[in-house]
Amino acid sequence: MIRRPGRLALVAVLLAGGGLLVTSVLRDTLTYYRTPGEVLTDPAAARQRVRLGGEVVPGSLRHDGDLVVFRLADAGRQVTVRQHGVPPETFREGEDAVVEGRLGTDGVFDADQVLVRHGNEYRPSSPAHPEPSDAR
């Protein structure tokens, strides 16, 4: 049995170490995604694998063979995304999405995963309340 002051110091050291470990691991979690503005102002950082989030610009979505191309916008800045693979069924223009990939040298973001970031508003979809899918 370690004596009491020693034990307290040990607990403090363990807690501090654990805290440091958790915060360093969580740094990626605390900024879950970058905005188009951040990616455009610091393109070098986006050459590594990052997440990019924003609203899918209405009218920008098109299919090009296996590729799905669209633009993500936030605060007036836009990045074009080239997605390899099928997005989820809930993916729609006008809704938010988070993509994962890296910025290409041509300024287009090459993504291989799309996550739909839906809002906290809940509305019925019955025909009695016609609602265009991109209404927000």
Binding site: L26, D28, T29, L30, Y32, P87, P88, T90, F91, Q113, V114, L115, V116, R117, H118
Partner: peptide, 15 residues
């Protein structure tokens, strides 16, 4: 899985 398109994300709420 059904709505976002993933079972798990390293997102602050989930973590």
């Amino acid at each position: 899985h059904l709505v976002w398109g993933t079972w798990w994300a390293w997102d602050p709420r989930l973590v």
